[in-house]
Simulated assay, not measured.
Amino acid sequence: MHITELRLHGFKSFVDPARAPIERGLTGVVGPNGCGKSNLLEAVRWVMGATSAKSMRAADMDDVIFSGSAGRPSREHAEVTLFLADAAGRAPAPFNKEDLLEVTRRIRRGLGSTYRINGKEVRAKDVQLLFADAATGANSPALVRQGQISELIAAKPQNRRRILEDAAGIAGLHARRHEADLKLKAAETNLTRLDEVLAEIEAQAASLKKQARQAERYRGLAQTLRETEALLLHRRWTEARERQAEAQTALREAERATAQAASEASAAERAAEEKREALAPLREEEAIAAAVLRRLEGVRVGLERDLAEAVGAIERCDAEARRARDEADRLNALKQDAQTALAQL
């Protein structure tokens, strides 16, 4: 697997799209100071997954975006694409069957970086492992930057060991080992958590067993309750049937009594009709008798009036008779007095 081409757009001094083909063998970049030769090497490091802004000679990763000049405005994003050939069987899944790989890193100001391999978005770790398996990468000593020779001379044994591991092509194995260690630690953490979860589950299981026993007891009581309710409902149903039979008997008796009453009412209606027919002559007689009574009543009133007049006349006669007697008594008294006087004479 080897690099065939490097494309840049908005990366540091490469404000316009630029293309740098890399042929087999030795490819040299020649130019005056400040023309961007080091920026090409840093672009290769950056697209390989570099995470240190210091290694990019920048204070912040956003500083790799073209910041503008006197005649050109600043850019809001930068993009670097690296083309790889003869990659079949050497790239990680799902790209291990691809012969040509196109690795792209794009950064937007304030939003961070995104990686793509053959147009498919991937993680930064996937890109770093891709180049680590090829015994290279952003931090590979094969990419010598400015001042790195003096750093290698004064390097610590650990850094020299890393250089030897990169030269031996086992840096990718160490990266995978580190990733495997992280996964192992994560698995151990998960196992510890699993033990805690199992303890919680056991406690819950004990509680569930208790609840199951209670539920079983509840089912037994519920079955007994259902049986009792069924017996009670059957008893009520039996009593209702008995009351229904009694009610039907009473209904039949009531129907017979109703029929008898209807028959008696019909007979009474016929008798009343006969009475009404016999009542017509009586009403005529009553009317005649009432007329006679009214006439007699008029006669009675006249007689009572005559009687009252006669009584008044009798009372007047009695009064006159009393006055006559009184006058006769007075005259007799005068007569006696006269006789007495005559006798004395």
Rank of each mutant, 00 (worst) to 15 (best):
R108A: 06
R24G: 14
E239Q: 15
L208K: 03
D181N: 08
L191V: 11
E285M: 11
L225W: 10
L129R: 07
A93P: 09
R57L: 06
R213D: 15
T51I: 03
K185V: 09
A138W: 05
A259F: 05
E23S: 15
D195V: 10
S52M: 06
K275Q: 15
V197T: 14
R213W: 07
G25L: 09
N118L: 00
R109K: 14
E269L: 12
A180R: 00
W46P: 02
E286W: 11
A124I: 11
E320F: 07
M56E: 02
E79R: 13
Q214K: 09
T81L: 04
R323L: 12
L345C: 06
R75D: 06
G25Q: 04
L82P: 01
I3M: 12
A88H: 01
E327F: 12
D60A: 07
L191R: 15
D60L: 02
F95E: 01
L82Y: 01
A257D: 09
H234E: 15
R283N: 10
E285A: 13
A247G: 08
K183S: 08
G89K: 04
E304D: 15
V29S: 07
K185E: 08
H9A: 09
L208C: 11
A310D: 00
G68K: 03
A20C: 04
E121N: 01
K335C: 15
V80G: 00
H174W: 04
A70T: 13
V299C: 04
S150H: 14
G147S: 05
L8W: 04
G28R: 03
G10H: 04
A175D: 05
E320I: 00
K209V: 14
E309R: 04
M48T: 03
K185G: 07
R24L: 15
R176L: 03
C317H: 14
G298Q: 13
A324S: 04
E227H: 06
V103Q: 00
A167H: 06
